[in-house]
């Protein structure tokens, strides 16, 4: 069965590249422009979320906390994809329930490897 991954980023070009990479690898992709948009689109089978950290309306950390509060998505992998690389921010993400952290820019094979690993 095709797995569905949600990509959340306020940058349309990043969403496009994530979507392009994942679709090429055989995944189905849902795009959201920020945390709030992501929560409104979070329904049905979503197997993983890849989110930016700094976004308007609702940032990545708040999004992780909101997702973890929904029983159906409590345990799905959530990976941060951000330019932020500070250890304190990573710790914050980890504490909120992030599964992993990728610092932009990513290479397609890296992203696909991470996705396959966490969805295993």
């Amino acid at each position: 069965m095709t797995k569905t991954i949600m990509t959340v980023d306020d940058s349309a070009s990043v969403r496009q590249m994530v979507s392009f990479t994942l679709k090429k690898a055989g995944f189905s992709v849902i795009e959201a422009t920020d945390g709030k948009d992501a929560m409104s689109k979070l329904s049905g089978p979503v197997h993983m979320v890849i989110t930016d950290l700094n976004m308007p309306n609702m940032d990545g950390i708040a999004l992780i906390k909101s997702i973890r509060a929904v029983p159906a998505y409590k345990f799905i992998p959530i990976v941060m994809l951000t330019t932020e690389s500070q250890a304190s921010r990573k710790q914050e993400g980890k504490a909120a329930g992030a599964t992993g952290w990728i610092v932009k820019p990513f290479k397609p094979e890296q992203l696909v490897d991470v996705v396959k690993k966490v969805l295993r």
């Binding site: 590249m17 820019p105 290479k107």
Partner: peptide, 10 residues
């Protein structure tokens, strides 16, 4: 190419 494209956002 995909990596370079992300530099618009970065």
């Amino acid at each position: 190419i995909v990596s370079s494209m992300q530099f618009h956002d970065i």
